[in-house]
């Protein structure tokens, strides 16, 4: 197990380095300009100077290695310092990955955005799981019943209808039509009493519902398939033959076994919490990680886009690994070589 893990981790490192290079190269080639949003009255010579001050005119490899050094050495050191309070080396003059748009450290920006994203997307993920599991189990247990048919239809709708459409329809109904819910998410709102909690719930209602619906749809299909698979297996037949109650079989045996792949699936989906549902954040104005990425892309903020997409890649790789490990722990039949 340990050997397998270390082997996988060793593989992950070159993968991530290749990814970081590919991302950097692509971003570097992209014909975008950080001075593009300045007013027209700013003359081209001044724009050139601004680009110079951002270090844009240095050769590619120098910028890449600089980013690598800042991202892999300086930023982790800073984090360690911040957490432990120790001072390691000359932290004052240590260069950080800085966004071109805000000239502030990218890591700070991300940390600032995390709460919103975690709240909205994370909560919707949890809600989605809570809806999906029972529906999946019942649908499978009563395959082709009316419950299954309706459940299937709703979950099919759930992952066939794009979230931007569901989001827009909800805004049309609840914000414009009924004016029950705010259409703009207030990131500075802080809950301290019941009315403000109520407001927080109101502003989270639409984005969370849209995303939860989407997540639940996918997961419930998966759960259903997993339970169905188990229903036809020998051990279920044996249990039935022993005269066990159907419900007992379902809850005790089938559920446990069919949760295996589902848990893996849930783990695999965790990175999407961070990549932030870009679209949903855009539609409901939740200024989280996804929105940060979009602003970065639109204003050619290369250090920001590079660091963010690389972090996403790291998360994907890590959670893939984690999913494998969870599977191994839960299912003793699997042995790692």
């Amino acid at each position: 197990m340990l050997k397998y893990l270390s082997k996988r981790l060793l593989f992950a490192i070159p993968t991530l380095i290749v990814i970081s290079f590919v991302l950097f190269a692509l971003l570097d080639l992209a014909p975008n300009d950080p001075t593009g949003n300045l007013p027209q009255t700013i003359p081209p010579e001044v724009r050139e100077e601004i680009r110079e001050s951002l270090g844009l005119n240095k050769p590619f490899h120098i910028r890449y290695f600089k980013w690598m050094q800042q991202f892999f050495i300086n930023e982790p050191l800073n984090l360690i310092e911040e957490v432990t309070g120790l001072e390691i080396g000359d932290s004052e003059s240590r260069l950080r990955v800085r966004s071109w748009l805000t000239r502030s450290p990218v890591v700070d920006l991300i940390i600032e955005r995390l709460p919103q994203t975690l709240w909205v997307v994370g909560l919707s993920y949890i809600v989605g799981i809570m809806i999906a599991l029972p529906i999946g189990v019942i649908s499978a247990y009563k395959q082709y019943s009316w419950f299954d048919q309706i459940g299937t239809f709703i979950s099919m709708v759930g992952f066939s209808v794009p979230t931007f459409f569901t989001g827009l329809v909800m805004i049309l109904i609840f914000s414009v039509g009924l004016s029950w819910l705010p259409s703009i998410y207030d990131t500075t709102h802080v809950v301290r009493d019941l009315p403000s909690l109520w407001f927080q719930i109101k502003q989270m209602a639409m984005p969370v519902t849209v995303l939860a619906f989407y997540n639940a749809a996918q997961l419930s299909r998966f759960m259903r398939a997993s339970v169905l698979e188990n229903l036809n297996l020998d051990y279920v037949r044996t249990a039935r033959a022993k005269g066990l109650h159907d419900r007992a079989i379902l809850l005790k045996h089938i559920l446990r076994n069919s949760m295996l792949p589902v848990v893996t699936m849930i783990a695999l989906g965790v990175p999407t919490i961070f990549t932030g549902a870009i679209i949903t954040e855009q539609v409901f104005r939740v200024n989280g990680i996804g929105q940060l990425l979009i602003t970065g892309i639109q204003s050619a903020d290369i250090p920001l886009v590079q660091s963010l997409s690389f972090l996403f890649a790291v998360l994907i790789v890590l959670f893939n690994l984690l999913a494998d490990v969870i599977y191994g722990i839960l299912d003793p039949r699997i042995r790692y070589e």
Partner: peptide, 18 residues
């Protein structure tokens, strides 16, 4: 053309207004 490119003045880009 995307505004950030069109109004940007990246001399390497073929799509600037300049």
């Amino acid at each position: 053309i995307d505004a950030a490119v069109f109004f940007g003045s990246d001399a390497g880009s073929p799509d600037t207004l300049q």
